[in-house]
């Protein structure tokens, strides 16, 4: 029982301020994910305090259940709803902040006034823990004797909560699923009215060393087809610059053709003759940097849009 040997005061004076700081972080961070991390930080500190106060089982449960399970659940949901969005901290309700501060201080003061003056010395848990040979054994004895009925009830609660979460999270289909015939009819309708191309969209491009879905197809005149890549990638500008890639190949082909005709091959613009992986790899970072130059800016734009909503 190592945690128990640590002097409680030391732990308190270390963990307490950290917890307060973490709690303020939870409230003040603009990004929810930082708030969640602050919360996890508070919980870990709390676990340490538990351990120091003679509750090692609770300390473990605090870390496993709260920090491990609950906070991770929060993070999952955060990722579902957009992990990197920063909240606006502008208050919209008049007087809410002032009154909230007053109420929070009032409630805290009330608690301190109400229960903050217990007997100066605590009885300590030593005798209680020793009765069953340890804290864990003591808790087990209580849970499975005096508190066995509430304990069983919690199982009912948990299973109900699990079922409820499944029911709530299930996506209910509001309209019947469209059949293939209906989809085809819609497509022809769109073609007839708006002239939308009814056939399959063009595949993404296949260039010598790039066949990812971020590679647009080339049209016969050498320009790219916007429809061949995902709209999302297109919107972010995160597509491979195919003309730039194909330019090298085209130059090589042109050189080969000239050689065959007995002429001096023209020197490729950026590279020596022959494929050179290093040079290509050297080119890739430049490409990617060039390809997605404004990703951060566009993200910010999206966020601004959402905030303005």
């Amino acid at each position: 029982m190592i945690p128990l040997t640590i002097e409680t005061d030391i732990v308190f004076w270390i963990c307490g301020p950290l917890m307060v700081a973490g709690a303020f972080g939870l409230v003040l961070f603009r990004k929810a994910v930082y708030s969640a991390l602050s919360m996890a930080f508070v919980m870990v500190n709390l676990a340490a305090l538990y351990a120091a106060m003679g509750a090692p089982l609770l300390a473990a449960a605090q870390i496993i259940v709260y920090t491990g399970a609950i906070m991770m659940l929060f993070l999952f949901v955060l990722m579902l709803v957009g992990v990197d969005r920063a909240d606006s901290l502008v208050e919209t309700i008049k007087g809410q902040r002032v009154w909230t501060a007053l109420a929070a201080i009032g409630v805290a003061g009330l608690i301190i006034a109400g229960i903050g003056h217990v007997a100066a010395a605590s009885a300590g848990l030593d005798s209680a823990n020793e009765a069953y040979g340890g804290n864990v054994q003591g808790l087990a004895a209580m849970l499975f004797n005096r508190y066995v009925f509430p304990f069983e009830l919690t199982s009912a609660l948990l299973i109900t909560a699990a079922v409820g979460a499944m029911v709530l999270a299930q996506h209910a289909r509001l309209t019947p699923k469209k059949t293939q015939a209906e989809r085809a009819a819609e497509r022809m309708e769109a073609y007839a009215t708006a002239g939308v191309h009814p056939g399959a969209l063009p595949n993404s491009g296949v260039i010598a060393r790039h066949n990812s879905i971020a590679t647009p197809a080339l049209l016969p005149d050498g320009s790219i087809s916007g429809e061949s890549v995902s709209e999302v990638l297109l919107g972010r500008g995160a597509i491979v610059d195919t003309p730039a890639l194909s330019a090298l190949t085209a130059a090589n082909f042109a050189g080969v053709a000239a050689e065959l005709e007995g002429e001096e091959p023209p020197v490729p613009p950026a590279l020596d003759t022959g494929p050179k992986p290093a040079s290509l790899e050297g080119a890739t970072p430049a490409d990617t940097a060039e390809l997605a130059p404004e990703s951060g800016a566009s993200d910010a734009a999206v966020e601004d849009e959402e905030e303005s909503k």
Binding site: F12, V20, G109, I111, G116
Partner: peptide, 13 residues
């Protein structure tokens, strides 16, 4: 008492 005050502060926050 100090721990209780801490708890109250956390609750208020």
């Amino acid at each position: 008492d100090l721990v209780l005050w801490l708890a109250a502060i956390l609750f208020g926050i």
